[in-house]
Design a binder for these strands. Structure first.
Lengths: 233, 233
DNA sequence: TACCTTATTATGTATAGACATAATATCTAT
DNA sequence: ATAGATATTATGTCTATACATAATAAGGTA
């Protein structure tokens, strides 16, 4: 009835995960090479390779050419967080998304920002302060700086009808980004903007974006009180 | 001197990303199939396949058998956060890691917890309250519940010399986990434990872990003031 | 001993060909 | 027209083979 089942890369993955958990292969130790494993499991080396490649990207093992593959002594469990576009995040909950520009100025970047973005931040930056609403409720306050040396087109953009993020995604490609989650107590300005008590704990997301070592933009997003980010692993 | 360079899956990836950004292929639209692309790029279908597979796992495109591959209309940028083991996180900064158990009780789970962990939470749980220190500084307060129905071994474990996380990782395999980042204002207890002012904004990480629909453990971790999580994409 | 050159080796990637599978499109009998 | 069987098709995966590359080990020379 059933033909012989070929061993899939998923099977190999599971078999290896089981051995790691049963400490057949101890943490930190070297495990057999791809050729040995492919013989043992009765499959092609490419199959083992894919299994190991995925395990490595999952953070379970570490691979080095010639040196071989070893079990990570501290399996760095990693969580993938989807950073949603705010319009979709809000519209997904059934509310209308509304955006408002509060202030738009051209400045020379403050020192702390220059430090964050690297030495290339010597030029003028466009500073935008804006709000994002879900229906009638304040959802997020955004503090945005755009490097005018690397994004000159921003100088002639009003940002009154489109939010900086959507505009940037459409207009400017980026190569690297850094994301920082942290918290802050609401100060006077934030408490008024987000309609929360003074001192409320707010979730913040900072994002710095580069294109090949050239800083493009820095944003700090302050979420409404009670905001949370969820993921499964 | 230099032989003809074969087109790598990285090249294909980049070429496709460029086209998506230049809206050669509009968001939501169908892009050419693997065979067509492999002919165009002059490489094997497997090469294109790997490029597309990775782009899909990066959240740039969506693939379905027979239906084809289409550009995601909202490219869900995702950030991979490494959730470090606290001992390593602390020792990496040069401080000594110290752990202290504050309280260990067996309880019936409160309603809010039962709701979080699913219906299987009807049994007894082990409730642990503990602290993690970096040198002499309070680093993290941990509120941990362990489902004794699914982890009976925990009943005979004192948790005085080993922290719950390290013990669980070693003893209990899990299949699924949910992670939630949020914030909270320090209450009286937290302000004393973490040595922060009353009301300070604290970063919190909740984690629920299952093994095949069976809830194993729920933990809520409260970090010291100023804690932040960083990642690059 | 210190330093440079040269194997050696495990992983990394590319390829052509084959079959599997899921989802859609088409055809057929009622 | 409609429900069910059948064909078609794009992706998904496995195989065997080949060559590339990085890192280590081994060997030889000053």
């Amino acid at each position: 009835m059933s033909a012989i089942q070929k061993t899939s890369y998923v099977d190999v993955k599971n078999a290896i995960l089981k051995r790691i958990h049963d400490t057949v292969w101890a943490p930190g130790s070297l495990m057999p090479g791809e050729v040995a494993l492919s013989e043992e499991f009765g499959c092609a080396r490419a199959t083992v390779n894919r299994a190991l490649r995925e395990l490595a990207s999952d953070g379970v093992i570490e691979r080095k050419r010639k040196a071989g593959t070893r079990i990570k002594s501290s399996p760095t469990r990693q969580a993938k967080f989807v950073i949603p576009r705010i319009r979709e995040e809000i519209e997904a909950t059934g509310f209308d998304y509304r955006y408002a520009l509060i202030e738009r100025t051209e400045e020379t970047p403050p020192d702390w920002m220059r430090a964050r973005m690297g030495r290339k931040g010597g030029d003028d930056v466009l500073h935008l302060r804006c709000m994002h609403y879900a229906g009638s409720r304040a959802f997020q306050y955004e503090d945005r700086w755009i490097n005018l040396a690397s994004v000159p087109k921003a100088r002639v953009q009003a940002f009154e009808d489109i939010n900086p993020n959507e505009w940037l995604i459409r207009e400017v490609p980026f190569s690297d980004a850094e994301v920082i989650f942290s918290t802050v107590n609401a100060d006077q300005m934030l408490s008024e903007m987000l309609n929360v008590p003074l001192g409320a704990a707010l979730f913040t997301l900072e994002r710095i974006t580069w294109f090949k070592a050239m800083p493009l933009t820095y944003a700090k997003l302050y979420f409404h009180a009670g905001y949370q980010m969820t993921t499964r692993l």
